Amino acid sequence: MKQGDIVGLKYRILKRIGQGGNSTVFLAENMVLSNLWAIKAIDRNNPSAIHEMQEVNILKGLNHHMLPRIADLCEDEKHIYIVMDYIEGETLSEILKAEGRIEESRLIDWGKQLCDVLIYLHSRQPPVIYRDLKPSNIILGDSGRLHLVDFGTAKPFKEQTLEDTVYIGTQGYAAPEQFGWGKSDERTDLYNLGMTLFHLATGTHPAMVAHDEIERHLELCGISQRFSSLIKDLVRHDPSKRIGDARTCLTLLNRLDRSHHHGSGSVRSGSFGGRLSLGITGVVHGIG
């Protein structure tokens, strides 16, 4: 497709704005309403098209301010076109490249926003597991609000499944269970979140760091012991020892946020096991 082409009789292609393995995303204008939309063009002859169409089936049932809406669906003999909200802004990977390491207080705010959308996704019936949380899939809009995009790897959680049948994720961010060591569930997204926060905090891609070196890298970059402990508890190899759910993670981030403003409290690191204990000295991880 090229600039000026018409999709679905009413969308004029303006430019290409993204490229994936099996699809291309274009910026388009609705010629009737004169508003802008993102259009994902999927090659219908590609065997992977069925996985790309899963994005439509998932997004059409979601309604959250951090998620794009599906507005229309068009097709021709070569492509299927998904028309969705155009979210103007920069990806976190672009911001990291331009600005360098992100300061901790800003990361805490971003982490809280991401927990909010994960709480929403994981509360669906069945829960929606995103499986590819990373800086390039998160857009910071002009209002300062984050937006999660690209649901091509998301899937509904199936309780009876013993392991993932298709290994999907991005090296460095993906949890061990995404590569045959079990099945993805809500804790998989939390592992992805932890590695995303690590990358933004240190400027180092998690694929370039040995897992047992994560704490040292965070310390060298001046990350507080509290925030470092939270990240470590998100990225434990054993899902049963990670922070157990996004709501608990949000609670911990809220306490971190308050401690940044008041400068009090302490954290003792350890295997989290998904349990939360709050005391007058701060957050204490349970042993699991």
Rank of each mutant, 00 (worst) to 15 (best):
M1A: 01
G4Y: 06
Q19H: 13
G20E: 02
S23A: 15
F26N: 03
A28V: 09
A28P: 10
L33A: 12
L33Y: 12
S34E: 13
W37P: 02
A38C: 12
A41Y: 02
I42C: 00
D43I: 07
N45K: 10
N45T: 11
E52H: 04
M53K: 09
M53D: 00
Q54T: 07
V56M: 11
N57E: 12
I70C: 12
I70W: 05
C74R: 12
C74D: 14
E75T: 11
E75C: 08
D76L: 07
I82Y: 01
V83I: 15
M84F: 03
Y86A: 02
I87V: 15
E88C: 09
E90L: 14
E90W: 10
S93M: 06
G100L: 11
R101C: 15
E104C: 04
L107F: 03
D109G: 03
Q113L: 11
D116K: 02
I119V: 14
L121M: 06
H122T: 05
S123T: 06
R124S: 09
R124V: 08
R124W: 00
Q125L: 08
Q125A: 04
P127E: 09
D132N: 04
D132C: 10
K134W: 09
I138H: 05
L146D: 02
L146W: 00
H147M: 14
H147D: 01
T153E: 08
E163W: 15
D164N: 15
Y167F: 15
I168T: 13
G169N: 04
G169F: 00
G169D: 00
G172K: 02
S184A: 15
E186L: 08
E186R: 01
D189W: 00
F198M: 13
L200Q: 05
T202L: 10
G203K: 02
T204W: 13
H205G: 08
P206Q: 11
A207V: 10
V209N: 11
E213P: 02
E213C: 13
I214T: 11
I214N: 04
E215L: 12
H217M: 13
H217K: 13
E219M: 07
L220A: 06
C221E: 11
G222W: 00
G222F: 03
I223F: 00
I223P: 05
S228L: 11
L230A: 06
I231W: 01
D233C: 14
L234G: 01
R236I: 02
R236G: 01
R236K: 12
I243A: 03
G244C: 04
G244N: 06
T248M: 02
T248W: 03
L252R: 04
L252W: 07
H261L: 14
H261Y: 07
G265Q: 04
G270R: 08
G270Y: 02
S271V: 07
G273L: 00
R275L: 14
L276H: 01
L276C: 03
S277L: 04
I280W: 08
T281S: 14
G282V: 10
G286C: 10
